[in-house]
């Protein structure tokens, strides 16, 4: 019943400094893949991450559709391996360094300014910042964050042992992350805005088959209630317009993701949802500036695609640097 994992548990901060061939902003699957390629190719490679490396993938309890792991693998384990692979070839990684601005200086020189008032210089820069869980923007959501409202079921699920939980959103993320919560909780109610689930059928089947789950569709959540702690969720039945209250001690929110692009909003082209537009070589309109992974338009937010993006950028960068 127990498992034991060994991961690197210290912030990464070592850096040689100087001019890098590539500065990668974001250490998720896409950014780390670029680093594996470029560092292995002998290019001086730096990754900056505003948190710890691993990205959203690291908080996924179990990844079952990444090739090569027939039994599935925990997101953290997989990301740990990928990071080690990048480091093995000499990638430098700095964590907890949030980027404030990207400043193209001239062809072959782009500066990356951080909130910690550091400036890093790259001949090329890759934006691999991914996306972050979208908020609902309803009353109670911010006020009760950390008091029963959470965006990481993998982390916080065990705290709701024997308790009632509502998961808002019955898409892939909601169901995937809700399944482990079912093991701990007394009952899990999935509330979905749409009249159906867009999740993979295998996930829907697993949730439906579980005795402790209820799936409710066509409901718009309007408020998370509670003062010191969450007491429940109010939602409108979109068919009858009736307001209903769902008692709960914990609320996990999985209503999609927003791209993390605030720091380059005025520099690159964004699509109407805020994702960065690139050509097929992952190039933005700024020479030497690339975007890959979930932050890029037309990326379906799948890890295998992000890894592919990372590879394409690495190959394009090699060619760009050769011609510089």
């Amino acid at each position: 019943m127990f498992d034991f994992k060994i991961t690197d548990s210290k912030p990464k901060k070592q850096t040689e400094g100087g001019l890098y061939d590539i500065v990668i902003i974001g250490g998720g699957p896409a950014g780390l893949t670029t680093a594996i390629y470029t560092a292995r190719d002998g290019m001086k490679t730096l990754i900056l991450d505003r948190e710890t490396t691993g990205g959203l993938a690291a908080t996924t309890e179990l990844i079952e559709n990444y090739p090569g792991f027939p039994q599935g693998i925990s997101g953290m384990d997989l990301m740990d391996r990928i990071r080690q692979q990048a480091e093995r070839f000499g990638t430098e990684i700095i964590e907890f360094e949030e980027v404030r601005a990207v400043v193209p200086v001239e062809e072959g020189l782009i500066e990356v300014h951080t909130e910690g008032d550091q400036v890093f210089q790259g001949k090329t820069v890759v934006i691999a910042t991914g996306s972050e869980p979208k908020k609902l923007g309803i009353p109670g959501e911010d006020e009760l964050y950390g008091k029963g409202v959470s965006y990481c079921a993998t982390c916080d699920g065990p705290l709701f042992k024997g308790k009632d939980v509502v998961i808002i959103g019955a898409g892939n993320s909601g169901l995937q992350e809700g399944i482990p919560v079912l093991e701990y909780a007394n009952h899990v109610t999935f509330l979905e805005f749409l009249a159906y689930s867009r999740a993979e059928q295998i996930l829907q089947d697993r949730v439906r088959a579980h005795e402790k789950s209820t799936l409710i569709f066509n409901h718009r959540v309007i408020e998370i209630k509670g003062e010191r702690a969450v007491t429940g969720v109010s939602a409108i039945d979109r068919e009858t317009n009736e307001e209903k209250f769902f008692p709960a001690d914990g609320v996990f929110i999985y209503v999609g993701y927003s791209p993390y692009t605030a720091f380059v909003r005025d520099l690159v082209d964004l699509n109407k949802w805020g994702y960065i537009q690139t050509d097929e070589l992952m190039r933005t309109k700024v020479p030497g500036l690339y975007a890959i992974g979930d932050v890029r338009a037309d990326n379906p937010a799948q890890m295998t695609v992000s890894v592919g993006d990372g590879t394409k950028a690495a190959l394009a960068i090699r060619e760009y640097l050769q011609n510089l």
Binding site: C155, G157, P158
Partner: peptide, 17 residues
Amino acid sequence: VTPTCPYCPRAAVLAME
């Protein structure tokens, strides 16, 4: 912490250091 929380060792090890 919880055993399933990938980020928890960061906070725990920092406190211990």
